[in-house]
Design a protein around this nucleic acid. Sequence first.
DNA 1: ATGGTATTTCCATGAAACTCGAACAAGCAG
DNA 2: CTGCTTGTTCGAGTTTCATGGAAATACCAT
Lengths: 106, 106
Amino acid sequence: MKLEQAAKQLEALGNPTRLNLYRTLVRAGAAGRPVGYLQESLGIAASTLSHHLHRLILTGLVTQERQATTLICRANYPIMQDLIGFLADECCADATCNSATGEAAA
Amino acid sequence: MKLEQAAKQLEALGNPTRLNLYRTLVRAGAAGRPVGYLQESLGIAASTLSHHLHRLILTGLVTQERQATTLICRANYPIMQDLIGFLADECCADATCNSATGEAAA
DNA sequence: ATGGTATTTCCATGAAACTCGAACAAGCAG
DNA sequence: CTGCTTGTTCGAGTTTCATGGAAATACCAT
């Protein structure tokens, strides 16, 4: 059931700390960011960050890659694309807003 | 701070019951649905539904309108549009996925 | 092996969420 | 006013979340 998964991802992003964390990773682009950097950047305890990171990873929104002793974290864009797609779908299933979503330009 | 608000909305949608509820309202379109209908449709206690509904209303995702003794609930599309816009923005701030998102149509 | 840095896991705690039944309030019909 | 339908608020119990300190693990350098 896709709805369950979407809810999990939304819940994962529905926390200011995690949303901020995710945004930082998104802004970092393909380069990603090491956990230590994120920890200092966000100013939270390492264990707290690890927990949040774990949650994002479980939902697939973030991936990690080991480089020697440091772990590089990256935003997993395709997952976000799917999520946005799901929301757009739900929103415009048979609603009037299909004209609004067409082109962001408007 | 927009991030805070986005987090609140995401959190509101990040619960299977509420996401399902919201979806039902979206599918209902402009007609909306009375609370009683939603309650039977979702099969949860009236008080539980009222609680969830309240949360969605607080974030602006849902609106209510009274019609005699029944309350009609409707999805508030523009808010969802904003939220999707925020996510898309964050996702493509300066990331590589701008090629992916760039043209929905491609 | 020893030591050092980088992260996670373990554990505890306070706060908040989810759920529901029961009592209450709002609004219409006779 | 009385009664009925609709929905919310109150009270309470169980579960989950958020947070961080301390200990454990992973990995590299020497």
